[in-house]
């Protein structure tokens, strides 16, 4: 076990965990931030996507001892009141079905739009291809990303 000082959603927090613990489980089990979801544990589904210094990473393979002083943002910290343009677009298009993968989809889309504010269809598909939605909401996700890009 070791103590790590982390910056999560603009707050300084301290956890005492095994250094090999993925951020996914640090967030969920130790910091009670359960919006970040477990889907596969091997970076294949994207449900656990968070931001490290604004870049989308898979928290299931991001180990706590590799984070250092980078800023961690989770779905709970993406906006103050759930009013990030991507979250609002998701609501407008009523994207979710079961909803389980959507935090990861939103985090991936938000980081993507920062790097590419006005993407084309193929760019959206490529950027989002690592995020699985088992309910098949891909067409709405694409529409919501376009709405967010235009807002």
């Amino acid at each position: 076990m070791a103590v790590f000082n982390l910056k999560v959603n603009k707050k300084n927090v301290q956890v005492d965990v095994d250094p090999s613990t993925p951020m996914l489980w640090v967030l969920r089990d130790h910091l009670d931030l359960v919006g970040t979801k477990y889907g596969c544990g091997i970076a294949q589904c994207g449900a656990c996507t968070i931001h490290l210094d604004g870049f989308a990473v898979r928290s299931c393979i991001t180990f706590v001892d590799s984070v250092g002083d980078k800023e961690i943002t989770t779905i709970e910290g993406l906006s103050e009141n759930g009013d990030h343009p991507v979250q609002e677009a998701w609501m407008e298009h009523d994207v979710p079905q079961c909803g389980y993968c959507q935090a990861g989809q939103i985090m991936n889309a938000a980081a993507f739009l920062k790097s590419n504010p006005h993407p084309g269809d193929e760019e959206i598909e490529t950027a989002m291809n690592g995020n699985i939605c088992r309910c098949g909401t891909y067409t709405r996700i694409k529409a919501a990303i376009k709405t967010a890009a235009n807002s």
């Binding site: 931030l33 359960v34 919006g35 970040t36 989770t74 779905i75 709970e76 993406l78 759930g82 979250q87 998701w90 609501m91 009523d94 979710p96 909803g99 959507q102 935090a103 939103i106």
Partner: peptide
């Protein structure tokens, strides 16, 4: 709209 929509997109 989905009554859980806001909770879903904010990770509750």
């Amino acid at each position: 709209k989905n009554v859980d929509g806001h909770k879903i997109v904010t990770g509750q």
